[in-house]
Simulated assay, not measured.
Amino acid sequence: NYLEFDDNVSDYDELEDDHNEELLESRGFMKDHCFREGSPRYAVKLLRGDLDSDTKREAALDLAIEAKFLATLSHPNVIKQRGTSGVPGHSQFFIILDKLNITLTEKRMAWREQKMKAKSGPFGLRKDRALLKTLWEERLTAAYDVARALKYLHENNIVYRDLKPDNCGFDIRNDVKVFDFGLAKELTERDRVGLDQYKASGLTGSRRYMAPEVVLCKPYGLSVDVFSFGIFLWELLAMKEPFEDYDVHKHARLVVKKGQRPMMKAYWPQYVKRLLESCWATNPRARPTFAEIYQMIKNFPELRTSSLTMTERTRMLMDRSVASLYQDAKENRST
């Protein structure tokens, strides 16, 4: 039932260096491999212990699906899976991932605080326009990285289905990574019922970012991620939660049925507004592909003239990815 849907509860614990250290120390792999010069390198994702049996069964399946996808995916903006333990689908199964420092939601709140300070300027005298420009470019760059990740997934016929800032984070190099693939699905010809339309479960994802066709349990395809990206991008630029005062009833009535969308700031560039409007179009066929979104953002004037162009950033991320693979191989040979 859509009206009972809750998108704010996680079924997983993510163990890092700052809690449950005894459990971390008890894992042989974690003890030997997950710390470099005393700093944690990885995080462990496993099921929470307080779940009821039905929820635990569903969450275990989601975690097994996530492990399956991450074992085959390789992209600079997708979280890297370093290992697994246990039997997939079992309540004790867990996966080991690269540790991220901060989620995009947390970063969005930090950006908002920085913007408030920049608007008052030093000593409250005038706006810090250089900082405001930097913050805008940082948000667009984060969106660009996420678009690159989704472009890669869609090229492999994978629909992500849960795009939101909570599922993206920054690593130690400040690169954006998409994580949490428990709701991802590979689209196959067997399930196709039309052009970019497949038989798939409805009410899948997080309500605020969910495409109308998913809420209404209609066939859907890759374009549902594009809709989510539109809401996601608006959140990064506005630096506030979309539909924050909407309960499920209001969201269903105004957003899903009547096509209401978040309000855009008057001063946002027209090319940004056009991208948002095309992404969250009610008609799935009117939405752009991520290949198109990637090119649009790449060619935004702010990013073409920034200190590091998007082409240079892409090359840098690819170089880092190759270096990481080389380092992994080197460490595996030494163990």
Rank of each mutant, 00 (worst) to 15 (best):
L233V: 07
F227N: 05
Y267A: 11
D245R: 07
F232Q: 07
L254Y: 13
K257A: 05
M239H: 06
E241W: 06
E235K: 02
R253D: 13
E235P: 11
Y267T: 03
F227P: 03
K265F: 09
F229H: 09
L233M: 14
A252D: 08
W268T: 06
K265G: 08
H251E: 02
W234K: 00
K265Q: 12
S228P: 10
E241Q: 13
A266H: 14
Y246N: 06
F229D: 09
K265D: 15
H249S: 12
R253E: 14
M263E: 15
K240Q: 14
A252S: 10
Y246V: 00
M264R: 06
Q260A: 00
V226Y: 09
V226S: 11
V248Y: 04
M263S: 11
E244Y: 06
M263T: 11
V256D: 15
E244M: 08
E244T: 01
H249C: 07
L254A: 09
V255T: 03
W234M: 01
K265M: 10
W234T: 03
L233I: 05
L254W: 05
D225C: 08
F229A: 09
V226C: 11
E244P: 01
K257R: 11
W234R: 07
Y246D: 00
K265E: 14
M264C: 14
W234E: 06
L237R: 02
H251P: 00
V226Q: 04
P242G: 12
H251M: 10
Q260F: 14
E235Q: 15
L237K: 09
R261Y: 03
F243Q: 06
P262R: 13
W234Y: 15
L233R: 01
D247K: 06
M264G: 08
Y246R: 05
E241F: 00
L237W: 12
A266P: 00
L254G: 00
A266C: 07
E241A: 01
K250Y: 11
E241G: 00
M263A: 15
P242D: 05
K257I: 01
A252T: 04
A238H: 04
P242Q: 11
D247T: 03
K250F: 04
V255W: 05
K258S: 13
F243A: 09
P262M: 02
W268Y: 14
G259W: 07
A238K: 05
E241R: 11
M264E: 12
V256M: 06
F232Y: 14
A252Y: 15
V256C: 11
L254E: 14
K258E: 04
A252L: 15
M263Y: 10
P262S: 13
S228H: 01
K265H: 08
Y267R: 02
F229S: 04
H249R: 12
K257V: 03
P262Q: 10
V226F: 09
V256A: 09
E235I: 11
S228C: 08
